[in-house]
Design a protein around this nucleic acid. Sequence first.
DNA 1: TATTGTTATACTCTATAACTATA
DNA 2: TATAGTTATAGAGTATAACAATA
Lengths: 167, 167
Amino acid sequence: MAEQAQFEELARQLSAVGAVKRDMGRILPPDCPTGSAAVLTLLGRHGDMRMSKLAELLAVDMSVTSRHVAHVAARGWIERHPDPADKRSRILRLTPAGLEQLDELSRRTTHLLAERLADWTDDEVNQLIRLMTRLRDSFGDCRSAPLRHASVAAPVLEETTRTPAST
Amino acid sequence: MAEQAQFEELARQLSAVGAVKRDMGRILPPDCPTGSAAVLTLLGRHGDMRMSKLAELLAVDMSVTSRHVAHVAARGWIERHPDPADKRSRILRLTPAGLEQLDELSRRTTHLLAERLADWTDDEVNQLIRLMTRLRDSFGDCRSAPLRHASVAAPVLEETTRTPAST
DNA sequence: TATTGTTATACTCTATAACTATA
DNA sequence: TATAGTTATAGAGTATAACAATA
């Protein structure tokens, strides 16, 4: 078990990694934002699946998944087939166009990472992958229960400040 | 230098870590979202600073920083003092209330991480911190230039699908 | 003219709740 | 009644551009 200072630092780095994610997002094709890219990537990696399964892999609510899926389906990158076993379900499947798009995504992210991580060793990359995977596992599906402590709401001042000076 | 498959996997994990971040965000006090928490944390760690410096540390546009700062200032957690050396600038400083809030944030995130990472060794946590820090450094301030390749925009079908069945 | 911040606007991601169709 | 998926709505984060004040 680690100490408090370590956890604080980890929280900091976790927050900071957002900058890296945004950087990755900037090189995506204009009509393929991160949400769409995640859908395509997971379908490419795990094969055909139902909405609920995809939502689980994305670790977001199914309503969110539904939107992302509608986006990629509208562009012809996936098809939604009725599930013969359960007419409520839909089986998602990449189309040839979707595979092409996936290749393009792979090219771009790989290119960016190869450039940025040029001085990383093979082993370091693997270590990072391993630890991040473990981190995910440790958080599991825990959609952390409310848990909210007694919260001390501070009074809002709404100081409608204009430009510098003043307080 | 690592291989393509590794980079793809790293990209995947980078995307997936969002779930962990969201989990962390859920335990924050209601009026202190992640943006506010980041502002308080950085001010606590690096001391008083100007808007531009904070924007750099947050790795977001200054317009975004301005909003976050306005939020925490409105709640009395920081003060914006005029910079005697440059009247355009404002020096940000935590207030006693801000320090209290920062303590509360630390308690909550530490508690959550201690719970989720109960079976991690001290060393593993340090490794992850080290590698994530290195990752950040490798991406540096690189607000990755456009770089956009020739993009093949797919035709939008906008299949206004209702419920299952159909394609 | 260039820089520091603020504000308006727009886009993406996410969650909650209400709803349809099926189990 | 319970589950799979969709849609409407709202909140948070971010970026771009226009703007004010100062350098």
